[in-house]
Each structure stands twice: as C-alpha cells, then as structure tokens.
Design a protein around this nucleic acid. Structure first.
Lengths: 364, 364
DNA sequence: CCTCTTGCCGAAACCGGTTTCGGGATCTTT
DNA sequence: AAAGATCCCGAAACCGGTTTCGGCAAGAGG
C-alpha cells in the first residue's frame, strides 16, 4: 500500500517494471509469475494468460542480468575476432555485424564483440567471456579445417556455431555458403565460353573453405573431362600482390591458361597487374572469375566477375542458429548451406583464338 | 562444514569463486569483503589488505551481472553503428573495434555492439541497451555538427564520448584527430611544391569533421596569402564516383587547378578516373593529397598521398575515456586531440610549368 | 464416503553481489 | 573515571529474478 509505486515523475526516466510490480498488480507471488512466463507446466492456463496479458500491458521485460545470476545465461552472443592475422575478413565485418546484431536484437539478445591478436588469445577471451557470463555461446568466423576453437569449446561444453565448416563436423552447427558449388559452376561457365585451359589460384589451405573450393574446381574439371594440371593450380594467394605473382607464374608458361579462377576477390585483382605487365587484356585475352563479390572487384575495370556472398544474411542466420543452439537444440538440426549467386562482370569473356600471341591484345 | 566446496573434479570447469567463498575463507562477512574491495572508508587498512590478498590469491573477480542488479552498472561500453547509411566508416571498423575492445578488456569491460538502419533506430537501440543495462555508456562515431544522439543522451543523462567533435561541446567528452590541422598542412606542402591553384573537394558538410577540414583549408590559404576561389571548392564528395565528378568540374575550367585536396580517400580515388579521362598524369600534371590513409589509397598507382589516421588508437583512447566518464569524471577533463601524420605518395609532386596544355602529359 | 492423485499456487530459499544500520570496542576529552 | 566521539565490522535487508518444496483443493477411483 505504500505510495512508492509512482516514482515516475514526468520527464524523469521511467523506472523499469519489475516482476514484483507484476505480482502485486495481479495479487500473485513472484514465483508464480516467473513460472507462468517461463513455461512451467504447473500453472493453469487461465493464470498463465492473465500473467502474459499483464506483462504485455505493463511492458514487463525481465532484466537479463538478474536472470543470469541464477540461470547462468545472459542472452548475448559472443564474437571474437582475430586481428593481427591477415585482415581478409575486414570488408565483410560491417555487414556481418549488421545481420547478426539485428537478428539478435529481434530476440532480445545482444552481441558482445571482442578481439584478439593470436589464436591463443582468442581462446582465452572466449573462456573469459563465458566465465563472466558475457556470452552464452559463440559464432566462429573463418573456420580452419582443424580449428582449435572448436576443440576448445567442445571440450568445455560451450555452445557455438561455425561460419563455414570443419573437417570433423561432430557436434557442430553451422551456416555456410556453397563455395565449392560456386567454383564448380565457374568451371562450367568458362568451359561453355570455350575455355579449356583454366587455372586455379586458391587461398590459404588451412581454411576449410579453401579445401571446398579446390574440390569444387577439381569436380568441375572432371565433370567436363578436363585433365588436372598441377602447373595450373596453386594456393596461398590471399592479397592482391600474391594473386598477381601467381598469375605471372601461370602466364609465362608455354601453353598459358586463357582463364583463371581465384578463390578470393582480393587476390583476383592481382590479375589486373599481371595481365597489364604481360600486355593481355582482361576479359579478352584472359578471363577472370572469382569469389566473394567485393565492392573493390565491382569497381575494377573491367569489373570482376564473381560469386557474390551476402554477409549480412550470413550474420542473421548465424545469430538465429546460435540462439537455438543455446536453447538446447541439437547441432545436427542446425546446419544451413546457401547458394551463392553469380555476379557477371567484364572480366569474363569467351576464349579468343588458340594463340597466346598478339601481346598488345585489345581489338575493337 | 558441508563438503560441497570442492565440486572441482579434475577436468570439469572450475566453479567461479564467489564472494561467499572469500568471506568464509577469511572469517569475515560478505558485506565487509564487498566494502573492503570497493574502497569504503570504514574498513581498516589491515583488513582491506587481507581481503585484497585473498581475492588475488583465489582469483576472485566479482560477477558483473550480480553487481549490475544492485549498482545498475554492467561494465560494458555500447557502440551502435548506423548501417544503411553510406558505409564510409566500413573500412575503419575492424581496427577501431580492435582498439576499443582491447582497451575495454584491459579494464575488465566488454563491448556491446549493435546496429541500426536509421538515426531514429540508433536512438531506440541506445535507449534499450541502457534500460537493459547492457551498456553503461556509448561511443558515438561519425558525429554530426548537431547530432541527435548527443541531444538524446544528454537529456537522458547517459554517459557518452564522441569520436570527433560537435558544434556545441557542452558536457561532451571526445577524442578527435586534428583533421583541420592536417588539411592546413596539406595546403602548405602543396604551396611549397609550387602549387598556387589548389582545389578543395570536401565531404558531407553535416559531419563536423568536414567543417573542421574545410576551415583548415581556408586557414591554409590565408596563411599563404592565397585567395579563396569558390570555383575551386566543393563538398559532398564521399565516394569514388562523386570524387571523380567533382574533379571533372574543376579540370575543365580555363585556369584549372594543379592540385586537389580531398577530405576523404575514397573520394580522392575518383581523381584517378577524371585525370585519366583528361589525359593528365596524377603526380605530374595533377597532384592529389587526401585524408584517411586507407589501404586502397596506398594501393593505387601512383599511390595516394594522405594523412594516415590510426583508428585502432582512436578506439583505445575512446574506450578509456568512456570508462572514466562512466566512473564520474567531468567531461571537460576527458578531451583528447591527436595529430595525424602525413603519408607520402606518388600522387604528390611539384607543379609542372604554367600550362594546362600538353594533355598527353607523361614525360620520363 | 474415504483415500489417492493430480493440478495449482504460496512460501521461502537461493543466485552473487551491494548497501544501510546499529552497536561493541577503542580512543579522546573533561 | 565517566561521557562522548571514532573506528570497524556484523547483521540483515535489498536488487530482480528463479527454483524447490510443500500443502490445499478439486477430481478420480474404490
């Protein structure tokens, strides 16, 4: 009966409505209110409804911090980014965060972001976040085939979802783009445009996505009865300069390739440099297809044909999957793979004659 | 005397040490332990020391969630990023996060990141984060001269620090780079290299940094006794295409400028396009100096001369400042400004003769 | 009609902290 | 030596929730 209820003076930030307010309003115990809202079975349907309506009406939302100290769950998803590494993920970050954060917010969850300079520090940070209950689980971006984060979280029984896949999928949930399918498709497209000598320039082989893309390339070749030529395949090209160097190696060969497939856009732009040096015109003398769909690729001239990944969507899906994982769903039921659309570009053209000559190239 | 203390079976995740463990160990009340650790004055020096030593020895760290429900503070700094806007901040994000997160982690704080599509939604998200106690305060990136976020947070008495400055600094803490000083310095450098007709291509004038950079440009002109020519100044060039269009306008004038200063690197790269069209060689017929120090600028050929901002450092400083602000320090004492180093590049060269002719330009 | 379930809710402990209140012991003061 | 002020700390309430336990009332079964 105290009159302390109405502390809300106009203008002053309204006090939160607590579970006690609700119980007082309804003439019911706090405990009963809590059980009614949390799906306990020992609550009558009518009471549950009254409680839910009142909660809705008063705008009650439980304070996660208070819940957390009992339940151990804080409704926040953790994301630890390894910096210091080559920052290939950098351009995706903003879109990815946007997707993850909005999906999380839709469920009343939040996103706790941390960074670390080394793989070991990543593990430490995750450990600390989970001990401090600042994260109920993690999204793991840029998965390695054999990823120490997976081993660590598995051992400590912390929920997680992969952005990408790993060699041993036991107990893993994930979202991934079908990069292998895309690269295989690229081989088909190039073949259809007359290309027969197609080179592949991959990324870091420790990343599992690279294994899948390389496999997709091989699959494409065998689909079409083309032979695998080791001289036309390499890996470890992540940035522009490395992509350029790889292209130089291929282009100076006697029977040079007429098309190159890159695993990542950043490296693919190196082909512009190598082609320029060799006097070849991209899209005419040499076709390039890549993967990522970066803005930089689209801005190149001619523009880079690529498979365009929607990182915002990935963030959304991963946040959803992780939340469901934390809530107890089995990891096997939480696996999604998504097609990647081809983004045409001027770097893709039909093969031009059998010769590697005419180095000055261009022809209107 | 129960033996439940030692739940720690080997391999199982060790239980957190709580304040109760500590009080039991010391034969002291929970309350006393708490007061001892939180700087209350009614604790004897000897007791305080005993408590601190024991806390250290047992590795006690209070659970922020539990503290939060009483104190209202959760030791986390909020960052709400507006997406949907032009994503000019995109490339900085990863470095900025790395700085902020590591500085926060060093103090036991965490970073809660959220995104929003519109300015209104930004306010809503901040409101919610602070009501849910998921953020004790905010870092505000990309400040407008008259920023609605500042008004909102000021009105609701929520701590914040600016990345950048605003027109009315009342009650504001901030970290900012001296962009105005940098642009002024650019004018001086160009003047020293013989340039007399220098154009300025600014960014969106609503952002306060743009006002400062424009002011720096004017200051530079007046330093050197050069006249301001409206025909050689414009704004609203944020991306490459806009930067190119602005350059075209300037270059087709009878007495074209020999140098251009851009407020942002992304726009500056448009000069490469415009110069190419006009048959001018960047760094010879036309010098370009810009601001940001992006990788894309460094990768251009010739490379873009620019003032290189260290966004990781900015993140660190801002996290520090915000934490101190939340702890109660006056905003006036929390203002930092930082010089920006010049990054030389091939786009900067001495002026070449008085003529705008010789359109084919290059000369070994 | 009596016992046995079952459904449903109140009472109270609990989570891990913080903060107020009051009082005993020691030290000053007169 | 008695009275008052100070120094410290224990006791207990509190924050906003969750969860266990037990019992009353109504329905089922014999």
């Amino acid at each position: 009966m105290t009159r302390q209820d109405k502390i809300n003076q106009s203008g002053v930030a309204a006090r939160r409505v607590t579970i006690a307010d609700l119980s007082r309003e309804l003439g019911i115990t706090k405990g009963t209110v809590s059980r009614a809202l949390n799906g306990y079975t020992d609550i009558s349907a009518s009471t549950r409804q009254r409680v839910e309506r009142a909660a809705e009406r008063l705008g009650y939302r439980p304070l996660t911090q208070a819940q957390a100290i009992r339940t151990g769950r804080s409704q926040s998803i953790g994301l630890v980014i390894e910096t210091g590494n080559h920052d290939a993920h950098r351009p995706f970050l903003a879109e990815f965060l946007a997707g993850a954060s909005s999906a999380a917010a839709a469920e009343g969850w939040t996103l706790t972001v941390s960074t670390a300079d080394t793989p070991d520090q990543v593990l430490q940070r995750m450990q600390q976040l989970v001990q401090d209950r600042k994260a109920d689980g993690f999204i793991l971006p840029r998965t390695l085939s054999d990823d120490p984060r997976v081993a660590h979280l598995r051992a400590h029984d912390v929920p997680f979802v992969l952005f990408g896949r790993v060699a041993d999928p036991t107990g893993c949930a994930w979202f991934d783009f079908k990069g292998g399918v895309a690269i295989r498709d690229a081989v088909h497209r190039l073949h259809a445009a007359g290309h027969r000598r197609i080179g592949y320039i991959g990324s870091t082989p420790e990343y599992h996505y690279e294994k899948l893309r390389l496999a997709g390339f091989r699959r494409g070749l065998s689909d079409l009865g083309l032979a695998e030529e080791p001289a036309l395949m390499c890996e470890n090209a992540v940035i522009r300069s490395q992509g350029a160097e790889a292209a130089r190696q291929f282009l100076c060969q006697p029977d040079r390739p007429t098309a190159l497939i890159y695993a990542v856009d950043d490296a693919a732009l190196g082909a512009w440099d190598a082609a320029h040096e060799a006097g070849l015109a991209i899209g005419h003398d040499l076709s390039i297809v890549s993967y990522d769909g970066t803005k930089e690729g689209a801005a190149a001239r001619p523009s880079l044909a690529s498979y365009a990944v929607d990182n915002r969507y990935a963030g959304e899906r991963l946040a959803h999957l992780l939340i469901r994982r934390v809530r107890g769903e089995a990891p096997e039921a939480l696996r999604e793979e998504c097609d990647v659309p081809f983004r045409p570009g001027g770097s893709f053209g039909p093969v031009r004659g059998p010769t590697g000559g005419n180095p000055s190239g261009r022809m209107p």
